[in-house]
């Protein structure tokens, strides 16, 4: 855990939905080119936390944040920080696959177009390379101009990953990316995440402890809005420091 390798960082983060506090004094470092898993029982604030990293919670009315979240050394919640630019740098894959009702090609070219890319050959090449990176190319290369909604759930999710990769983010947030997928699709996505961490910094929220153990380097355990324990996945899973972590991992509650 080298302090120089920190990519994102929460400092004393509190988050409120109306008067209800959802996150309570979170301090958490996210390391470069690694996978950090956020685990915890339902309603503990996992999704709330991950959606803070790209300011997705800004869309929810009557919410409030205290504290700071840094990308490199800039607080992304500073007044005057460019939320559009932050979201381009910090990509997100959602819980339910959410391709646009457009063609497969258009789904991926979309991110490039909204960021001002006009060169047709460049877009074309980037669509292909993104699909290849997301391990979807072989399955869709003959029907790039068909509706993305005809794909299976697992394929749709990989399309969403390709869509996210196309704009070349620096950090990728996965919010329970396999929650609605079958085991084979889940396995494909996990392999993909392991491949992606070579180039990207990844944060993943998961319900599935085995998944956290399989894909992540670091794990944060959240319970009722509090960060109970954070450490390397190996240590947290084998010798947890906190009693609560141990009880959760052994299935005493969930």
């Amino acid at each position: 855990m080298d302090k120089n390798n920190i990519r994102m960082k929460c400092e004393k983060v509190n988050f409120y939905y109306g008067r209800k506090r959802a996150l309570d004094d979170i301090n958490l470092d996210i390391y470069k080119n690694s996978v950090t898993a956020i685990i915890g029982p339902s309603g503990c604030g996992k999704s709330t936390l991950i959606r803070l990293y790209n300011r997705m919670n800004d869309l929810i009315p009557r919410t409030r944040l205290e504290g700071k979240i840094f990308l490199d050394d800039k607080n992304i919640y500073d007044i005057g920080s460019d939320v559009v630019e932050i979201r381009r740098k910090v990509g997100m894959v959602f819980q339910k696959p959410n391709p646009f009702p457009k063609t497969i090609f258009e789904n991926i070219s979309y991110g490039l177009e909204v960021n001002g890319e006009k060169d047709k050959t460049f877009i074309n090449d980037r669509v292909i390379s993104s699909l290849k990176k997301a391990a979807l190319w072989c399955e869709v290369k003959d029907r790039l101009h068909d509706s993305a909604l005809q794909l299976s759930g697992g394929q749709q999710q990989r399309l969403c990953i390709a869509r996210c990769l196309a704009v070349e983010p620096e950090v990728i947030l996965f919010d329970e990316p396999c929650a609605s997928l079958d085991p084979i699709s889940t396995q494909k996505i996990e392999e993909l995440i392991l491949e992606l961490k070579k180039t990207y910094t990844i944060i993943i929220v998961t319900h599935n402890m085995q998944q956290a153990a399989r894909v992540s380097d670091f794990t944060a355990f959240l319970y009722i809005g509090k960060l109970v324990e954070f450490g390397t996945t190996e240590k947290l899973f084998t010798v947890p420091k906190e009693k609560l972590t141990e009880e959760y991992l052994t299935g005493k509650f969930g």
């Binding site: 630019e85 979201r87 979309y110 960021n115 869509r163």
Partner: peptide, 8 residues
């Protein structure tokens, strides 16, 4: 959300 998350 998907669109905004891409920097649109």
């Amino acid at each position: 959300e998907a669109s905004l998350a891409l920097g649109a």
